[in-house]
């Protein structure tokens, strides 16, 4: 029942001095739960990391070398997001 449970993009700062990096996405009904789920899923609650969650629908994507005319209708859906970027050091094997 994720229809009431929108998609959130998760960004993690693994250590001081590093920027937040996109690590993946998840579903949650609100920001507080999204943050909680992100901590459980992407960091297994490692301490000292900083996590941002952003509603996927709030992200506007540039696609300079993509031809929008050729997107199928699903391209408008928020779930068409880049996911699974590199996991920051220190989070990978958790």
């Amino acid at each position: 029942m994720t229809d009431h449970s929108p998609l959130w993009e998760v960004f993690v700062r693994a250590r001081r001095g590093l920027s937040h990096t996109h690590v993946g996405s998840l579903h949650a009904p609100d920001a507080e739960l999204a943050l909680r789920n992100a901590r459980d899923l992407y960091t297994r609650r490692q301490e000292g990391v900083s996590i941002w969650v952003v509603p996927a629908g709030a992200i506007t994507a540039s696609s300079p070398d993509e031809k929008d005319a050729f997107f199928d209708p699903a391209a408008d859906k928020v779930y068409r997001h880049p996911t699974f970027y590199e996991v920051p050091d220190g989070v990978a094997h958790l």
Binding site: M1, T2, D3, L7, G24, S25, L26, H27, L41, D72, A74, A75, K77, Y79, R80, H81, P82, T83, F84
Partner: peptide, 22 residues
């Protein structure tokens, strides 16, 4: 469970929702 969620998220990038898949 975590792997399942990573994979559902990967599938969602193809324009289908996790709800539909479940």
């Amino acid at each position: 469970a975590g792997h399942g969620l990573y994979l559902y998220a990967a599938a969602e990038t193809l324009g289908i929702s996790r709800d539909e898949l479940v």
